[in-house]
Computed example of a mutant assay.
Amino acid sequence: MEEQKEEALSKTNKNEQVKWKFFLMGIAVIVVLIGIFGVVYTVIAVRNLSTSPTVLKVAEVLNLPVLRVNGSAIPYVTYMDDLSTLNEFYSKAPEGAVPPSGEAVSDQVLSRLIVNSLIKDIARENQLTVTEEDIQKLKDEIFAQYASEAEVEVELQEQYGWDMATYIEKIIKPLVTEQKVSEAFEAGEINVGDEVYQLTDEVRASHILFRTDEEGVDLDDVKKNAEEVLARAKSGEDFASLATEFGSDATKEVGGDLGWFGQGMMVPEFEGPAFSTPVGQVNDQLVETQFGYHIIKVTDKRSVRNFGEYLDNRINDAKIEILIDKVHDPLEEYRRLQALNNTTQENSAQDVIVEEVVE
């Protein structure tokens, strides 16, 4: 009798264990299904360009990409974050200014993400690294026009919703990397194989800016002051000292030095005199631009390999995959123009061959 009771109890326990196993298995299946549903929902939401915080968080965890550049994924979250920031920036444009279309803003964001990815590739290939000293140096140059770093942080928060760490990661580091890659290329330190690149002219100049684009400025007084300082600069006074004393932009902290720049990098009114003034001389006249009056001194000139042409080639050779149908390809027009240019060159080459045969 006792044995029968124990046997019955044992069977009951086994039945309970089986029930619990099926129950737990059922829970596990439900959890998996919920997870699968969450992933599928997130993927669909991403394809529809969702900005939901929940979707963005899951997309970040899953590392869902918006595009790939040579196999390197550009996260959807990064794209949407930059897109939101740029839209916010344009929303604060002065009254009357026409903001770019949504497609144009998206193109700007993606183009910069593509270029940044390619430049990181070039830096890695050539073992070019960004140091803390590099970052600090550029920060000092950019922040020189502010009273303190705290003032910069306030403006970053108001304009972009960024803290300093975000600004360094999104702006400073990519700028430093691009600068290093560009300098290495121009110096011939980057191997380009058999490719031959055109030389482009660059100028190194310093300037002293007398601003006229601020409210309440007496234009006659500003011009008179600028003319007096121009006379002193032409007479041989130390230009860097004059720039430090009278300059009104960030370059005053470095004696007015603008560094090296090529054609198309400055406004036309400034570029012309900068390229035409001989090395070591101060331009004879004040140069007026939308920012104010400039006194320009050219300190050096050189011809270097065209980095823009090299970057164009890297873009042409890159495998760039837009992974979301609703995202416009920012390089669509670029590729069309490149194809048109290539066709024109091929036709010109054929014409030359025909002429030679006829002759």
Rank of each mutant, 00 (worst) to 15 (best):
Q159A: 13
S84C: 08
S148E: 06
V46H: 00
T42I: 15
T131W: 02
V105Q: 09
A45M: 13
P99W: 07
Y76A: 00
S72F: 07
L156D: 08
P75Y: 03
V77R: 01
F89S: 06
V66M: 07
L86D: 05
A59M: 05
V109L: 02
N63K: 12
P94K: 03
P75I: 06
V66D: 04
V55P: 00
K137R: 15
S91V: 05
D121W: 04
E151Q: 11
E151P: 06
N126I: 06
P53H: 07
T42A: 06
E155H: 12
E60C: 11
A73Q: 08
F143V: 09
E125L: 01
V66L: 03
Y41W: 15
V61T: 10
K120N: 07
D121N: 05
I114D: 06
L128R: 04
Y90W: 11
P94R: 02
I122W: 00
L56G: 02
Y90L: 00
V43C: 12
I142D: 08
D107V: 01
E88T: 11
E153I: 01
V61K: 14
A150F: 14
Y76G: 00
V43H: 15
D140R: 13
S111T: 10
F89N: 04
L138Y: 13
E125P: 01
Y90D: 01
V152T: 05
I142K: 15
T42L: 09
Y41S: 13
Y79D: 05
E141D: 12
N116Y: 02
V98L: 10
N126V: 06
G71K: 11
E88A: 14
Q157G: 14
N116R: 09
G102R: 11
A104H: 11
N87P: 09
F143Y: 12
S111G: 10
Q136P: 01
E103K: 13
I114W: 05
V77D: 04
V154P: 09
N87D: 09
R112A: 03
L49S: 01
N87C: 07
L49I: 09
V40Y: 15
I44Y: 15
I119N: 01
A123G: 09
E141V: 14
K57G: 04
A147Q: 15
T78L: 11
A97P: 05
E88S: 14
L62D: 07
S52F: 06
I142Q: 13
L110W: 08
P65K: 00
E88K: 14
P94V: 01
V77T: 14
Y90E: 03
R68D: 05
V55G: 00
D82W: 09
R47P: 04
S72W: 05
Y76M: 02
S91H: 02
V109H: 10
N70M: 05
S72H: 07
F89R: 08
V58M: 13
L118S: 08
I119S: 03
E158P: 09
L62P: 01
V43L: 15
